[in-house]
Amino acid sequence: ISTPTHWSKLDPKTMKVNDLRKELESRALSSKGLKSQLIARLTKQLKVEE
């Protein structure tokens, strides 16, 4: 399991699906679903981290 990238360095809308999945997995979140779902899930988590 990798260390999550700091929230300020991430822009989920421009990330590739593989990168989105890695970030979600490093935060112990589900990495299953469509790209739009991955973006929404990661965006929501990054707002919590701010």
Rank of each mutant, 00 (worst) to 15 (best):
I1N: 05
I1V: 09
I1D: 02
I1W: 04
I1E: 05
I1M: 09
I1G: 05
I1L: 05
I1F: 15
I1A: 14
I1S: 04
S2I: 15
S2N: 15
S2K: 15
S2A: 11
S2R: 12
S2C: 13
S2M: 15
S2D: 14
S2Y: 15
S2T: 15
S2G: 13
S2E: 10
S2F: 15
S2P: 07
T3K: 14
T3V: 12
T3L: 12
T3D: 08
T3A: 07
T3Y: 15
T3I: 09
P4W: 08
P4I: 13
P4D: 10
P4R: 15
P4N: 09
P4L: 11
P4E: 11
P4H: 07
P4V: 12
T5Q: 10
T5N: 04
T5R: 10
T5I: 05
T5A: 13
T5W: 03
T5H: 06
T5G: 06
T5Y: 04
T5L: 08
T5E: 10
T5K: 09
T5F: 01
T5P: 04
H6N: 14
H6L: 14
H6E: 14
H6W: 08
H6Q: 11
H6S: 11
H6I: 13
H6M: 12
H6R: 10
H6T: 11
W7F: 12
W7D: 07
W7G: 07
W7V: 08
W7N: 05
W7Q: 05
W7L: 06
W7T: 10
W7K: 08
W7E: 08
W7P: 10
S8A: 10
S8R: 07
S8T: 09
S8G: 12
S8Q: 04
S8H: 10
S8E: 13
S8K: 11
S8P: 03
K9L: 11
K9F: 05
K9M: 10
K9W: 06
K9C: 06
K9V: 09
K9G: 08
K9N: 08
K9Y: 08
L10H: 02
L10C: 05
L10F: 03
L10T: 03
L10P: 03
L10N: 03
L10S: 03
L10R: 03
L10I: 07
L10Y: 02
D11S: 14
D11I: 14
D11F: 09
D11W: 09
D11E: 14
D11P: 02
D11T: 15
D11H: 14
D11G: 05
D11R: 15
P12L: 07
P12T: 07
P12I: 05
P12F: 02
P12E: 02
P12D: 00
P12N: 00
P12A: 08
P12M: 08
P12K: 01
P12S: 02
P12C: 06
K13C: 05
K13A: 10
K13M: 13
K13F: 05
K13P: 07
K13G: 06
K13D: 08
K13Y: 06
K13R: 06
T14V: 12
T14P: 01
T14Y: 11
T14I: 13
T14H: 15
T14W: 04
T14E: 13
T14C: 10
T14G: 12
M15D: 01
M15P: 01
M15Y: 00
M15A: 03
M15N: 00
M15F: 00
K16G: 11
K16D: 11
K16R: 07
K16S: 13
K16C: 12
K16F: 07
K16V: 06
K16Y: 08
K16L: 11
K16P: 08
V17W: 10
V17S: 12
V17T: 11
V17Q: 10
V17D: 09
V17K: 13
V17R: 08
V17P: 07
V17I: 13
V17L: 13
V17N: 15
N18T: 15
N18S: 15
N18C: 14
N18L: 15
N18R: 15
N18Q: 15
D19H: 14
D19L: 13
D19G: 07
D19S: 14
D19P: 05
D19E: 05
D19R: 10
D19C: 12
L20R: 00
L20D: 02
L20N: 00
L20S: 01
L20H: 02
L20F: 02
L20P: 00
L20E: 01
L20G: 01
L20Q: 03
R21A: 07
R21F: 04
R21I: 13
R21D: 00
R21W: 03
R21L: 06
R21T: 08
K22H: 13
K22C: 08
K22I: 11
K22W: 07
K22G: 06
K22M: 12
K22A: 08
K22Q: 08
K22F: 08
E23H: 04
E23C: 02
E23Q: 06
E23W: 02
E23N: 03
E23P: 01
E23I: 00
E23T: 02
E23Y: 01
E23F: 02
L24W: 00
L24D: 01
L24C: 04
L24S: 01
L24I: 03
L24A: 01
L24H: 02
L24F: 01
E25N: 03
E25Q: 10
E25M: 10
E25W: 05
E25D: 03
E25G: 08
S26V: 15
S26T: 15
S26K: 15
S26N: 13
S26H: 14
S26D: 14
S26A: 15
S26E: 13
S26Q: 13
S26Y: 14
R27Y: 00
R27W: 00
R27N: 01
R27H: 02
R27E: 01
R27I: 00
R27G: 02
R27C: 01
R27V: 02
R27Q: 01
R27M: 03
A28N: 15
A28F: 13
A28T: 15
A28P: 01
A28V: 12
A28G: 15
A28K: 15
A28S: 15
A28I: 14
A28L: 14
L29M: 12
L29Y: 04
L29T: 05
L29N: 03
L29G: 01
L29F: 09
L29Q: 07
L29C: 09
L29A: 00
L29D: 02
S30L: 07
S30C: 14
S30N: 15
S30P: 14
S30D: 13
S30Q: 08
S30F: 04
S30G: 12
S30K: 14
S30A: 11
S31M: 11
S31G: 13
S31T: 11
S31C: 13
S31E: 09
S31I: 14
K32M: 09
K32E: 10
K32D: 10
K32R: 10
K32S: 08
K32V: 06
K32P: 01
K32W: 10
K32L: 11
G33N: 00
G33T: 00
G33K: 00
G33C: 00
G33D: 03
G33L: 00
G33S: 00
G33F: 00
L34A: 09
L34M: 11
L34Y: 12
L34D: 11
L34T: 11
L34N: 08
L34K: 15
L34E: 09
L34R: 14
L34F: 07
L34P: 13
K35Y: 05
K35S: 05
K35R: 06
K35W: 04
K35N: 06
K35L: 06
K35F: 04
K35V: 05
K35C: 04
K35I: 06
K35A: 05
K35H: 14
K35G: 04
K35T: 05
S36R: 09
S36Y: 09
S36T: 12
S36H: 07
S36E: 08
S36K: 09
S36L: 08
S36N: 08
S36P: 13
S36A: 09
S36M: 07
S36F: 07
Q37C: 12
Q37I: 03
Q37R: 07
Q37G: 06
Q37N: 07
Q37L: 07
Q37S: 11
Q37P: 06
Q37E: 14
L38I: 05
L38P: 02
L38G: 03
L38K: 05
L38W: 02
L38Y: 01
L38S: 03
L38T: 02
L38E: 04
L38D: 05
L38N: 02
L38R: 03
I39N: 05
I39Q: 10
I39K: 13
I39V: 13
I39T: 11
I39H: 05
I39R: 13
I39A: 08
I39E: 10
I39C: 11
I39W: 03
A40T: 09
A40I: 07
A40E: 15
A40D: 11
A40V: 09
A40Q: 12
A40G: 13
A40F: 14
A40K: 04
R41P: 02
R41K: 07
R41T: 06
R41W: 01
R41A: 04
R41S: 05
R41M: 04
L42I: 06
L42E: 03
L42H: 03
L42A: 02
L42G: 03
L42N: 03
L42M: 07
L42F: 03
L42S: 03
T43F: 11
T43P: 02
T43A: 13
T43R: 15
T43M: 10
T43Q: 11
T43L: 12
T43E: 09
T43S: 12
T43C: 11
T43N: 12
T43I: 11
T43G: 08
K44G: 06
K44W: 05
K44T: 09
K44Q: 06
K44L: 05
K44H: 06
K44F: 04
Q45N: 08
Q45S: 08
Q45C: 12
Q45M: 06
Q45P: 01
Q45G: 04
Q45R: 13
Q45D: 03
L46E: 01
L46Q: 05
L46N: 02
L46G: 01
L46V: 06
L46P: 01
L46C: 07
K47N: 09
K47Q: 07
K47I: 07
K47R: 10
K47L: 08
K47A: 08
K47M: 05
K47V: 07
K47Y: 05
V48G: 08
V48Q: 11
V48H: 09
V48D: 09
V48M: 10
V48L: 11
V48Y: 07
E49Q: 03
E49M: 00
E49A: 01
E49Y: 00
E49T: 01
E49K: 00
E49H: 01
E49F: 01
E50Y: 12
E50N: 05
E50K: 05
E50S: 07
E50A: 06
E50R: 05
E50D: 03
E50T: 03
E50G: 06
E50H: 13
